[in-house]
């Protein structure tokens, strides 16, 4: 069984298809400079490593992505809800004007609910294979208990998309990188599987692929021997959709998650953060996480 990384292109290629393909198909905007991929050194490696199939797929996807944004700006806005950020048009590079973030209200998160976890695993194609010690876990439910009062809170925990990500700092090859819009990703073409990023992440947010994989999602490539973590559903975000966990939680659970642009003072997430006391997990480490919590 070969792993699919070689066949399916890198996480960042695929993740950035909105960007990459947008550029390919027309505008020629300065992709490399401003996208996180480019800054990771030498680009995604899409073109260099599996040029033809990847490029062709890129073109096809470009069509799809463009169609989506040009045909349905209204849909885009609708899916983010009023006051939340708009989709990045597919013909624009990732920009640091936005910083994607998430606010999780623990008081609305039900003890027994794991819908966000299921949504993520379905969306991104990781699952329980019966080896809990080695299975990938992009998002997990955590229960926090106050030692004195015994008060219990439950909340989802995933990559917090740090603004100062230690995983990126320690990665020897630059495979771990932060996009200009704050999303932290792993370039599956240049990850050598050293796991130093896993040692460095304070939140156990990353998983190493211990086994050969089958049936991967095209937009979320994974590969044995490399490291992965929550991508903030970058493939959806670039199309103006919400991350799968947020969408599911809002639609069929407590509505505990707010996703949006932390840089836009008018976004719902910024407004909430201005109004309520929010918590940054391990704020003492000074990582400036993009995912914040409320009511812990």
């Amino acid at each position: 069984m070969t792993d699919l990384v070689e066949n399916e292109g890198g996480g960042c290629c695929s993740a950035n298809n909105g960007t990459t393909s947008g550029t390919t198909s027309g505008t020629g905007s300065a992709l490399a400079g401003s996208s996180g991929c480019g800054s990771a050194g030498g680009g995604c490696g899409c073109a260099s490593q599996d040029a033809m199939p990847q490029t062709r797929r890129g073109f096809m996807k470009a069509g799809a992505a463009l169609a989506m944004t040009t045909l349905a700006p209204g849909v885009t806005l609708y899916s983010f809800g009023a006051g939340q950020a708009e989709a990045k048009p597919a013909d624009q590079a990732v920009t640091s004007k936005v910083r994607w973030g998430m606010l999780i209200d623990a008081s609305k998160c039900d003890d027994g609910c794991t819908k966000c976890v299921t949504a993520c695993s379905t969306e991104n194609g990781w699952s329980d294979t019966g080896n809990p010690l080695t299975d990938a876990q992009w998002i997990r439910k955590v229960t926090v208990r106050d030692r004195d009062q015994g008060k219990e809170t439950t909340l989802p925990m995933m990559c917090l998309h740090c603004a100062e990500p230690p995983c990126v700092d320690v990665c020897p090859t630059g495979a771990s990188f932060k996009r200009a819009d704050g999303i932290v990703l792993v370039n599956k073409h240049t990850c050598i599987g050293c796991r130093y990023c896993m040692m460095a992440c304070p939140y156990k947010a990353r998983s190493f692929i211990h086994e050969p994989l089958e049936d991967q999602k095209e937009y979320s490539p994974r590969g044995k021997g490399t490291v992965e973590s929550c991508t903030l559903c970058v493939h959806r975000v670039d199309e103006g959709r919400l991350p799968a966990c947020v969408e599911t939680c809002n639609a069929s659970a407590g509505g505990a998650m707010t996703f949006g642009d932390l840089n836009d003072p008018n976004s719902e997430i910024s407004q909430r953060m201005a109004k309520f006391v929010t918590t940054e997990v391990r704020a003492d480490l000074g990582l400036n996480t993009g995912v914040r919590y409320q009511n812990i």
Partner: peptide
């Protein structure tokens, strides 16, 4: 993860 608090999960 949360200094001073206890943390449990299905992920050890």
């Amino acid at each position: 993860l949360f200094p001073g608090k206890e943390v449990v999960s299905g992920f050890y």
